[in-house]
Amino acid sequence: MNDTNSQHILSYALLLRVWAALLALTVVTVGISRIDLGALNIWAALAIACSKGTLVLLFFMHLKYESRLFAWMFLAALCTLCIFIGFTFLDVLYR
């Protein structure tokens, strides 16, 4: 039962690279926010936030090295949140 307790150890170098990428993305998102793109701004900001989040999840939180089940569970939670937000807009947008 304790078969999957063996751990994947992430190297310091990989963690540092992820960190550097996160910092770079932060700079990019701030930079983009200084340019006026209209409604695109919010989507760009969200897209960058999502890619940063993915990095944190996959590497810092080891999701990449966990069993596939964890990823499915996470997707289930994320979908639920999206549904909650999306369905609320069925009301708000058409009221």
Binding site: T29, S33, N41, I42, A45, L46, G53, F60, M61
Partner: peptide
């Protein structure tokens, strides 16, 4: 701790970088 970070990653653009 990473979750705390993860949530901040979204709070930051949504609140501070709104145009």
């Amino acid at each position: 701790w990473h979750l705390v970070d993860l949530i901040w990653i979204f709070i930051f653009p949504l609140y501070y970088l709104m145009l």
